[in-house]
Design a binder for these strands. Structure first.
Length: 279
DNA sequence: ATATCTGCCTGCTCGC
DNA sequence: TGCGAGCAGGCAGATA
């Protein structure tokens, strides 16, 4: 499940290898993968364009083109974006949804088992990513920014961290990890957080995402980086996917509940339902 | 307006 | 062994 650290890993890999590549031909096998414009229009517009840069905003990959347009890719659950040689057997993968031939013979391939992923070709990226909340690893992201997005909301903290307009880039795994590190119960609502708790949460979000990028992300089930070894952060998860295991901090059994239709993992001792811990 | 629910999708695991 | 139910979950769009 690609979240911010996984998308960042893919972006840095593609930045080294894709920039300078020129598209010569477009293949779309599942037209709904192309969110905008119509798949046939994209197939007409993209050939001839050169990739000039690779960026990331939240969980979106931003592939800049020399026309000034941007190819935006969201991997959602099972999407993969990778460069393949022209004779790669992976181009015959049944789950390949679109691929772009490059002038040097390589192919930029989008594979997506569950067809949730989407690709846009736009002149103005704000059309797609304009409503995203602050970028949590940006140095300009402050506890005050977080407070501004959380304080007005009477929603469970877990749901707030999954809301991409509150903070960009967190998914189910890192939301649970950040709340654990901050010592905040996932069912606490936004308005109830103290300044100290928001400060801890701000730091926890940045710590978890930074650690995970250092490990090239978390490989569970579907996600793996485009090249080389898989991510390794799955070995360092403190609560996500660890129900009934001892809490790494206090030893109590990790609990698993459902919040906002998502499986949610937390320590009932380190993340009390209300108020601060005294320890 | 905000909060919550449903649909999109496929493949794996579980219980009978 | 076979098979249906449940689950995984990001996000758009609908509903309350």
């Amino acid at each position: 499940m690609p979240e911010l650290p996984e998308v960042e890993t893919i972006a840095s890999e593609l930045r080294r290898s894709l920039v300078g590549g020129r598209v010569t031909r477009v293949h779309v096998l599942w037209s709904r993968t192309i969110a905008q414009p119509d798949a046939a229009v994209l197939a007409d517009l993209l050939p001839g364009q050169v990739f000039t840069g690779v960026g990331r905003r939240g969980k979106y990959l931003l592939l800049g083109l020399d026309s000034g347009d941007t190819l935006i890719v969201h991997l959602r659950m099972t999407g993969r974006l990778e460069l393949l040689p022209g004779d790669s057997p992976a181009l015959a993968n049944t789950h390949i949804r679109a691929w772009f031939e490059l002038a040097d013979g390589r192919n930029l391939a989008f594979t997506d088992q569950r067809k949730f992923g989407r690709i846009w070709l736009v002149g103005d990226v704000a059309q797609v990513i304009g409503k995203l909340g602050p970028e949590p690893l940006d140095w300009r992201f402050t506890p005050d920014d977080l407070a501004e997005r959380i304080r007005p909301r009477r929603v469970a903290m877990k749901a707030l961290l999954l809301d991409q307009t509150a903070v960009a880039g967190l998914g189910n795994i890192y939301a649970d990890e950040a709340l654990f590190l901050a010592g905040i119960h996932p069912l606490r609502i936004g308005v109830s957080l103290t300044d100290a708790e928001i400060g801890r949460l701000h730091d926890a979000i940045r710590q978890v995402l930074g650690e995970a990028i250092g490990e090239r992300g978390t490989t569970l089930r579907d996600y793996r980086p485009a090249y080389g070894a898989e991510g390794a952060y799955q070995n360092r998860l403190r609560v996500y996917g660890q129900p009934d295991q001892p809490c790494p901090r206090c030893g109590a059994a990790i609990q698993r509940i459902r919040v906002a239709q998502r499986s949610t993992h937390f320590c009932p001792v380190c993340q009390p339902t209300r108020g601060e811990t005294t320890s």
